[in-house]
């Protein structure tokens, strides 16, 4: 399987570990990512508020390049563009969606693109998030088959952030309110997934630069929630989320007098570890909050399955009411 690949700026800088680990994991799964040649900024979260048409044109240039370069001729899946960064993913898919909806916008954007000798026909690129591709195209079974060192004993809080699941338009692959695909992926790797009610809540985004206290409060809530559920680490799929929770954890502790030491890793790093790759090969060691103490728990405790309480008859005198049945969880 070969996809067009749009790394975005984060994966070249602060989220270098994401890039390293996803490439290592992709190689193990037989997935190839062909980087779009000459890509440019996705506009991040601000530019679209500054000038709509220019922002759309900026993003569309990437779509136009991707459409040209993933035309099926080099063995790549036609028009499939993978973005691992949630912000890039949202911007690319949002622009593609609105261009398809509005011919007027598409023609305005194409006027701008023409200056660079490019054009883009809406609908010709399908923007995918990395997680979507790994769980839906590759599939849980194939991932499970690659696991060499199951993550038994590791309690992870799956953190999706906001951009990958919302808004709930076209091509969104999970529930916008309570996504579960990362949960299942982590279970596939053998990890214990804790309930993490804030899994799709805000990480503070760029508020760290604008209103620091607001951002730190948002980050604190997430850390507290993970700590309340005794998670060993938070696993994320977004460079922004990783950065905020990791780099600002000390500031949160300073402001609120807490003592959180919760490592924040990319899901691809845990995939790599479970596949038997070395920590260095998946970029572990680049995070601010050291992940090694948590990772040392892998295999130390009994497998997660044994933790589940055996079915027992209710004791005499126990008046508790049965819990609602949930559909059988796969894996």
């Amino acid at each position: 399987m070969r996809y067009g690949y749009y790394p975005g700026c984060s994966l070249e800088r602060n989220a270098g570990a994401y890039h390293t680990s996803l490439m290592a994991v992709a190689a193990q799964l037989g997935v190839e990512f062909a980087e779009v040649d000459d890509w440019n900024c996705c506009g991040a979260t601000e530019f679209i508020a500054v000038n709509r048409l220019r922002a759309y044109a900026l993003v569309s240039r990437n779509l136009a390049l991707a459409a040209r370069q993933t035309n099926g001729s080099n063995g790549a899946a036609k028009g499939q563009l993978v973005a691992p960064c949630s912000a890039c993913y949202l911007n690319l898919s949002k622009v593609e969606h609105y261009l398809s909806q509005s011919p007027a916008l598409a023609s305005g954007v194409n006027n701008a693109l023409a200056a660079g000798g490019l054009s883009y026909e809406p609908g010709s690129v399908r923007v995918r998030h990395l997680l979507d591709v790994l769980v839906n195209d590759v599939g849980y079974e194939k991932v499970a088959a690659r696991v060499r060192r199951p993550l038994h004993g590791l309690r992870v809080a799956p953190y999706y952030g906001c951009l990958v699941v919302r808004p709930g338009f076209q091509g969104r692959f999970d529930d916008p309110e309570y996504p579960t695909s990362l949960d299942r992926l982590m279970r596939t790797l053998g990890a214990t997934v804790v309930d993490f009610p804030l899994k799709a809540h805000c990480c503070g985004g760029h508020m760290t630069q604008i209103s620091r206290d607001v951002a730190l409060e948002l980050i604190r809530r997430l850390l507290k929630n993970a700590a309340d559920y005794q998670a060993d680490m938070i696993v994320t799929l977004c460079p922004m989320c990783q950065l905020n929770l990791d780099a600002f954890q000390e500031s949160v502790n300073g402001l609120f007098g807490t003592e959180y030491r919760i490592p924040i890793l990319f899901f691809t790093q845990l995939m790599g570890l479970a596949f038997g790759l070395s920590p260095a090969a998946v970029g572990i060691g680049k995070e601010f909050v050291d992940a090694r103490p948590a990772l040392a728990k892998i295999g130390a405790a009994a497998p997660a399955a044994a933790e589940a309480a055996p079915k027992r008859k209710p004791r005499r005198g126990d008046q508790s009411l049965p819990l609602p049945q949930m559909p059988e969880e796969e894996l």
Binding site: E177, L198, R221, K224, D228
Partner: peptide, 8 residues
């Protein structure tokens, strides 16, 4: 919006 046990 939601019912949660995530205490702030």
């Amino acid at each position: 919006a939601e019912v949660t046990d995530a205490a702030r």
